[in-house]
Structure formats: structure tokens, C-alpha cells
């Protein structure tokens, strides 16, 4: 049994991320939830928030999404999201990526909370 999950994050503009990960955290409609390998098959909706996952090499990556759904299987996770922006950037790039995130979240309720948490990550 493989203890790795194949994560695919797809937006209407194409594939955002595809690769093996150790664990993932999703902003579910009913609250945040984590997914580890061998998770039971489930389908649920996602709301605006942060998807965070640990890659095979241990590095943690995060991206902000506005809405979508996710299909979890034992070995694979497919997240279909409407829009996504990666949380990254150093120095002057931070402002730019924050702007992108604000733009993405303009239709999402309690977006301030998400933005605040993004800001704390970046600084």
C-alpha cells in the first residue's frame, strides 16, 4: 500500500498542481478538514480559504481558493476549484500576490479572515 497521495488541483484555466503529497488540509464547506493517505472515499464542497499540503520532500505549500469541490479517494485527491492563487513571494512581490488574492476573494464572505491569515503567513 502506498502511503502517498496523488493531489491534483485543477481550475478552469488549467492544472495548478499535480504531484504526490503526504497530507492536505482543505477549507471544507463545513469547516476545515485534513486528508491523509488511505482516507475513505468522499466528495464534498469547498469554500473560500487556504489549501495547504506537505509535499514529498517535506516542504509545505499553500494556495488560496475561492470555491470548488473535492473528490477524495484512497490514493488520489482531485480538487476542482474556480480560482486559485499561490501564497508565495518575497519583498515587493508580497503586495502583488495579496492583491491577486483580494481580487480572487472579492465574492467570498469573511474574506478578511483569510487575507489576514495569508498576511501572517507571508510576513
Amino acid at each position: 500500500m502506498s502511503n502517498k497521495l496523488l493531489l491534483e488541483i485543477i481550475t478552469p484555466n488549467g492544472l495548478i498542481f499535480s504531484g504526490h503529497v503526504n497530507n492536505i488540509r482543505f477549507p471544507g464547506e463545513e469547516g476545515e478538514f485534513g486528508v491523509l493517505p488511505e482516507h475513505t472515499s468522499i466528495f464534498t464542497l469547498l469554500k473560500g480559504g487556504i489549501i495547504e499540503f506537505t509535499k514529498e520532500n517535506g516542504s509545505i505549500e499553500a494556495l488560496v481558493i475561492n470555491a470548488g469541490n473535492v473528490t477524495v479517494d484512497k490514493t488520489s485527491v482531485i480538487a476542482l476549484v474556480d480560482g486559485a492563487v499561490a501564497i508565495e513571494g518575497k519583498g515587493s512581490d508580497i503586495a502583488k500576490s495579496l492583491n491577486n488574492i483580494r481580487e480572487l476573494l472579492k465574492d467570498v464572505t469573511d474574506s478578511n479572515l483569510i487575507i489576514a491569515s495569508v498576511e501572517s503567513r507571508l510576513s
Binding site: G28, E29, E30, T40, S41, I42, F43, T44, L45, N69, T71, D73, K74
Partner: peptide, 14 residues
Amino acid sequence: DSTLEIEAYNEEVV
């Protein structure tokens, strides 16, 4: 074989 479950809190909304 693994049937997909829909999160139970509100199947219809999902």
C-alpha cells in the same frame, strides 16, 4: 469498488 460517499451533512446541497 470503493464507493464514493457524499459528505453527509447536506447531501442535497452538495
